[in-house]
Each structure stands twice: as structure tokens, then as C-alpha cells.
Nucleic acid binder design. Structure first.
Lengths: 211, 211
DNA sequence: GTCATTCTCCATCAATTGATTGATTGTCTC
DNA sequence: GAGACAATCAATCAATTGATGGAGAATGAC
């Protein structure tokens, strides 16, 4: 049978992906200060020299991790179309996206760690900052659109509001509560916070009872 | 004059404070992964052996930093009385407190760094988590009070709202903008987000022009 | 003065850690 | 089969790093 058991070759990319995955797991477990190239190699099941063959230096390795995270988020974003949806619907889509990332834990923690590192590592900042700016811009656009069509508060500041939304989502994980339940609660609160109070008959996030 | 030039003695506490300050500065500059006991000693102007005389281990040193930060925040919180203030006024006091911390940069960054570290270091978590829980509880209380007296939204969820407020404040620093201007903008947005829309004649944060 | 206590430094250790060298194996091309 | 290339590993290096031992200096008690 065409099993292709272990592609011993032609897997330079494959190896780098494996290395990135192992590095991400270790960063989530121990943070950057506990990241050792030896541990990564061991987790992949290769020699340190082999690790250095695929990724020249530790710095390049951290960059690789940042890129892998960026690729993942990009893919997630492109997965579904925002066409024809209302501002509120798109906002809920953002909530759902983030919730999904949260459920995996690892990506969220590594992103937080990279975010801190970007503060003092220009190479990482170059990868992470645009991601954050893009995300922030997306949310700001949604808020601006909702304000324009009257579904969101007329006095909503889209830029500041985007920080509020993003910050709220992230901060929901700081509490000892069950992460996802806490997130849902904050997401619901964020929705009420941006909604136009003039539109009293609110539309609940889910629950079948249509008025 | 009674100069008391250099108290060569009886300064065990003094030395520990110096060490904590140097460690904080270095953590803010390079993060935990770049923290070296030698660098701390050098910045204080003492030998590594002397550093270890005052702080037995690196782990204890990180704990010392966390405690010094906790003491600082406690002192800041106790500095002014919240007696007789409206919910909105106390909320603005929280904004002002945070803004002040922000202006110093260092405490904010070190707190963020410790917050990440608390995720995997129980000793640090034991110090940091209660701080965060206290802060969150303070904000939640303010929101609950404002909701009760009608100045805040009746559908405001104090717990989730507190995460939104705290997260928003923190997230305001993620943008490349001027930090403090960005913060003020988010703080204003947060105020609008929790305010009771039924009370239309809003009270502006400052600015003399009434109505 | 003597002695104990406190604080400090020089010298040094043992372990860790990122990285390299040189050789080996397997695969593809010709 | 020969040569080229990709991938891997054992062995090892040089530098770093947290930590210690022992000795010296300053201070206060008596």
C-alpha cells in the first residue's frame, strides 16, 4: 500500500513546522525564559545539530514561531466570508474567532508571550505589531460601520472602542473562572456596551425565541 | 551638617530595596529571559556575592520584585479616600491612578511581565493573582454601585464590565500611538460604555464649558 | 582591646546552553 | 557506480550563569 511511512526526505518544510510546533508548546509551558533549543530538539525527536541545520539560530527560531502564529491567524481570518453581514453579526464572528483561539489555549498564551517580547525585540515587533494593528483596524471598522447604520452607539469612538473590545476579550482570561464562560460573559457585556441604546428591542446573541 | 553620607550599616532593607529597584528596571528593559543576577548586582554597584547575601536566590529575587510592586500599588491605592464620591467619580479616580502608573512605564511593563510569569510560577501567582483579583473586585464594586444608583446602565454586568474596563485600559497601551493620549481616549470610551443612556445630559470628564 | 556581628568582595565551581565540526546515511541524477 | 545533495547525529566548544567559600573591613558591645 502506498503508505509513505516516514518521508525521510523533501521535508525541510515539514521539519520546520514540527520545530515551530514544539517550540510553541514549550513557550506556552515555560515562557521564553525557559525555552531551550535542546528541549525543542528532544520534543521533535532530533539532535540539536539537526535543529540548527533547519533553523540557524535561536533568534530565527523565535521568529519562526511568530510567523507560524501569524500564518495561523491569517488562515483563521480568511476562513469565512464577512459579506452581507450586519456590523453586529461580524462583531459576533470576531467573538467566535477569538473564542476558538482561546479554546486551544496554546496560541493565546504564545501570542501573549510574543506580545511582551515584541516590546524589546524589533524582529518580533515587525511580525506581531502589524497583526495587532490589523486586528484592531478590523474591529474599529466594524464599530464604525455599526455606528453609521445606527445599530451601535452614535457616540462610539471606533478606535478607542476597538481597544476596549480587544482588551476586554483578553482580560476575560485573567480571572480564575472557567475561561470560556468568562469570555462569553465579557463578550455579551461588550455587545451591550457598543449597542445603540435607542434600539431598545435588543436581539439576543442566540436563543431561538424570535420576537 | 548632619549629612549621614552613606549609611554603611543597618541597611539590609535599604539594600534589598535597591536590588529590587535595579531588578525591576532590568526586567522592564529585557524581560525575565534577559534577567541576569550579575547585571542586577552591577547596576546596584555591588558584587554578585553581596547580592546573594541579601537575596539568597534568583527565585527569591523575582519574588522580591513582585512584592515590591504589590507594595507600591497598595500604597497608591490607599493614598486617597473614596469617601463620599459618586460611582462615576470613583471610576475616574481609578482611571487617574492607572494613568499615573502608565506614565512611569516601568511598573506597567513589569506588572505585565509578572502577569505572564504568574501563569507558570505558583510563587509569583500567589502574589500577583490576589492583586489582580482585588483590582477587579474594586472596579466591579464601582460598576455595581453605579448601576444601583442609576448612573450606569441597568443591564451592566459588573463582573464582566470590570474585565472590560481593565482590559480596555491595558489594551490602550498596545497601540503605537502616544500612550497617554490613547489611554485618555479609551477611558472616555469606557465611561460612555457604562453610562446609563437614560441620563442623556452627560457630564463631561473635565473641560469648563457646561451644557 | 577584644570579640561578635554585619556586610562586602575575590576567586572559583559546576552546570547549563547555544552553536559548530566532521563524519555518516540515504536518495536522486546521470 | 559515481557524484551531488539533503538530512542526521555524536562529540565537543566556548561562553555564560547562578551560586558558594573564605577572607577582609567596618561597627557596636563590653
Amino acid at each position: 500500500m502506498t503508505a509513505a511511512p516516514e518521508p525521510t526526505r523533501r521535508d525541510t518544510d515539514h521539519r520546520r513546522i514540527e520545530i515551530a510546533a514544539a517550540a510553541r508548546a514549550l513557550i506556552a509551558e515555560r515562557g521564553f525564559e525557559g525555552l531551550r533549543t535542546r528541549d525543542i530538539a528532544e520534543r521533535v525527536g532530533i539532535n540539536i545539530a539537526t535543529l540548527h541545520y533547519h533553523v540557524p539560530s535561536k533568534e530565527a527560531l523565535v521568529e519562526l514561531v511568530a510567523q507560524s502564529l501569524r500564518d495561523e491567524f491569517t488562515a483563521q481570518y480568511l476562513r469565512q466570508s464577512r459579506e452581507g453581514l450586519s456590523a453586529l453579526e461580524v462583531l459576533r464572528l470576531e467573538f467566535a474567532d477569538f473564542r476558538e483561539t482561546l479554546a486551544g489555549r496554546e496560541a493565546f498564551i504564545v501570542m501573549a508571550e510574543l506580545s511582551e517580547r515584541a516590546r524589546r525585540d524589533p524582529r518580533i515587533a515587525e511580525i506581531i505589531r502589524p497583526m495587532q494593528a490589523f486586528w484592531h483596524g478590523q474591529i474599529a471598522d466594524i464599530l464604525a460601520r455599526g455606528r453609521a447604520d445606527g445599530s451601535f452607539r452614535p457616540d462610539l469612538d471606533p478606535i478607542a472602542g476597538a481597544s476596549m473590545v480587544i482588551g476586554g476579550m483578553i482580560a476575560s482570561q485573567r480571572l480564575p473562572d472557567d475561561s470560556l464562560a468568562g469570555f462569553d460573559r465579557v463578550a455579551a457585556e461588550l455587545e451591550r456596551a457598543v449597542r445603540n441604546p435607542a434600539l431598545k428591542p435588543l436581539t439576543p446573541p442566540k436563543s431561538g425565541s424570535s420576537s
